[in-house]
């Protein structure tokens, strides 16, 4: 199939950026979306031009590196799917496709479709962990965990940290990402000791990074490639409230 791409081109953080039109031909339905872009880049290189910069790595939907807004939707039209797992059978011959980076105040553009998501790492560094030094663990089966809790923790822990939630939120809120990590650890006995401090410190960092607050648009849930439910945000609000009002009880 033959496609018309409208791709965001931005030379660097200081550049204003613009949409650029590219034609790409010879695309087959079994190609992934990124393989389609590979083809477009091969053509650009062949013509001696600079290829479109985009982030990608594992190409199997788990590393969370790929990050594009496709026709206005983070990760594109297919539910529960990262950009790298989106295949061209979702498009048809003659389509025009608009491709933009994950935009947000807290995700500055580095080049073209590549953004800086270091703010996510800093939120984890602020408290998204259990403080247990190597070597100080007890036997793994000493602490039984209800299957239901373990499953719930795993549902939240499935987050790949891609940032689609932020890119799709009108407020640029990172609350689904933060809620997923908080929810993962709050559902396990190992996460209890630091539960309150974690809620306060992660939220403080989230605010400091310039992310907005949640106002219940549910766009994050709709685009999340791992389909993490927004109900975790509700739990996060309760965690935060309880920790703020009764830090010592």
């Amino acid at each position: 199939m033959k496609l018309t791409l409208h791709v965001w081109r931005q030379a660097g953080p200081q550049d204003r950026g613009r949409m650029e039109m590219l034609q790409v031909d010879g695309i087959t339905s079994d190609m992934s979306f990124l393989e389609m872009l590979d083809k477009a880049n091969e053509d650009l290189i062949h013509d001696g031009k600079e290829p479109v910069a985009f982030d990608h790595d594992c190409r199997e939907g788990i590393c969370g590196t790929c990050s594009m807004v496709i026709d206005g939707v983070a990760h594109g039209p297919q539910e529960g799917t990262t950009t790298c797992q989106l295949h061209m059978r979702a498009f048809k011959d003659g389509d025009s496709i608009h491709i933009e980076p994950f935009r947000s105040r807290a995700f500055p553009v580095i080049k073209d479709l590549v953004v800086d998501r270091g703010s996510f790492d800093r939120i984890i560094a602020a408290g998204g962990y259990v403080s247990v030094n190597t070597g100080s663990a007890q036997d793994a089966n000493n602490l039984p965990v209800r299957k239901k809790d373990a499953d719930m923790a795993m549902d939240a822990a499935a987050c790949i940290g891609c940032g689609a939630c932020v890119a799709s939120c009108p407020n640029g809120s990172a609350m689904l990402f933060v809620a997923a990590k908080m929810g993962h650890l709050a559902h396990l006995p190992q996460g209890q000791a630091e539960r309150k401090e974690r809620a306060l410190s992660m939220v403080a960092q989230m605010d400091a990074e310039g992310f907005g607050a949640c106002s219940n648009h549910y766009e994050c849930e709709a685009v999340c490639p791992k389909e993490i439910p927004a109900t975790f945000i509700g739990s996060m609000n309760r965690e935060f409230l309880k920790s703020s009002l009764c830090p010592d009880s």
């Binding site: 962990y129 259990v130 247990v132 190597t134 070597g135 100080s136 663990a137 007890q138 036997d139 793994a140 089966n141 602490l143 039984p144 965990v145 209800r146 299957k147 373990a150 923790a153 795993m154 822990a157 993962h184 650890l185 396990l188 190992q190 996460g191």
Partner: peptide, 22 residues
Amino acid sequence: NNIIDQCVAQGVPFAREYGGML
């Protein structure tokens, strides 16, 4: 064996049986 202990202590959500064991 130490690795499994360490990972569980970190909160790695390994699959469990209904009794709560790994």
